[in-house]
Design a protein around this nucleic acid. Structure first.
Lengths: 155, 155
DNA sequence: GATGTTTTGACCTTTACTGACCTTTAATAT
DNA sequence: ATATTAAAGGTCAGTAAAGGTCAAAACATC
């Protein structure tokens, strides 16, 4: 039943559940061979079903010994940080809004003092440089990946 | 596990840890024989994993009685992080070199695990976007201001 | 049949590994 | 002393082994 993409999705999720480490490491080619499809099909599944919004973070390495690592984000039930992050950071974000978010996350103890100082330093217009609107786009990309990376369950 | 290069890296690091002198002296041919690879593989490992940014210095001698000497550059207390940062980060810095520096600072306990994960996310090419050489310029600016922000007295 | 989703394949980039050839140093022979 | 040989390590280009991208084709839905 379902599409091939659905099958691959189910398989990955099952493997993630079984794994004790909170992440799964596989070779793209192996997965493709297992499901008799082209390797890029795996990327399609990851892009459509393992996004940040859906609570996953994917990293990879190319070259000999390369791999895909699919990491489950540890989002605590109740205060949905992921939702907050996603609703506050769109395609672009101003320095002001960014700082607002950081302040809030610091107050809520998701970020330490040092971490928030560090992140404020990055999203400062002087560190980023660039003109508008590129600066706001860049700030959004950076802020999103930084916060998502801190949600990793294996941390 | 990983690749042959990873194995060799692990072996050298273990030997360094065990050694009381802070450096390790080996024969390139012996190492190659031990790992059943060509001698130039050893150079590959040294070039990719024992760079200056990563806190190592390699010296060698050719000819009869030749050797490789791998020296760990510890950061002594009292050493100035600012000097280290400035000497490592120039006008531009690649993702690889940046990660090398972060790894080193984490190992030396200047950064917590979370902080290093966070900074790695920032300097990732996918967060930064842009093409070369703008990306390497931006990475240098950001990395410098992030690390310097952590030197604040009140942290 | 228009629209959205899935599947495929051709081409690209990154990382690991190998081997042929080169340079330097020490030991030995003349 | 000098020349020769042996014993190291260095370099670089080429090949192999991964994963990434993007657009077109196929399929599904309404």
């Amino acid at each position: 039943m379902g599409t091939l993409a659905d099958e691959i999705e189910k398989y990955i999720k099952k493997m993630l559940d079984v794994s004790l480490k909170g992440f799964l490491e596989v070779k793209r080619n192996d997965l493709a061979a297992m499901f008799l499809c082209v390797p890029s099909q795996i990327n399609y599944v990851l892009e459509t079903r393992f996004t940040n919004e859906q609570g996953y973070h994917v990293e990879s390495r190319r070259g000999g010994g390369g791999y895909l690592r699919i990491i489950k984000l540890g989002v605590k039930p109740g205060d949905d940080l992921l939702t907050l992050v996603n609703s506050t950071i769109g395609k672009m974000i101003s320095q002001q809004s960014g700082e607002g978010l950081i302040n809030r996350l610091e107050e809520e103890k998701f970020l330490t003092k040092r971490e928030s100082v560090l992140i404020r330093a990055i999203i400062d217009k002087n560190s980023l440089g660039l003109n508008q609107p590129e600066q706001d786009l860049l700030r959004a990309r950076i802020l999103r990946s930084v916060l998502i990376s801190l949600l990793r369950e294996d941390l």
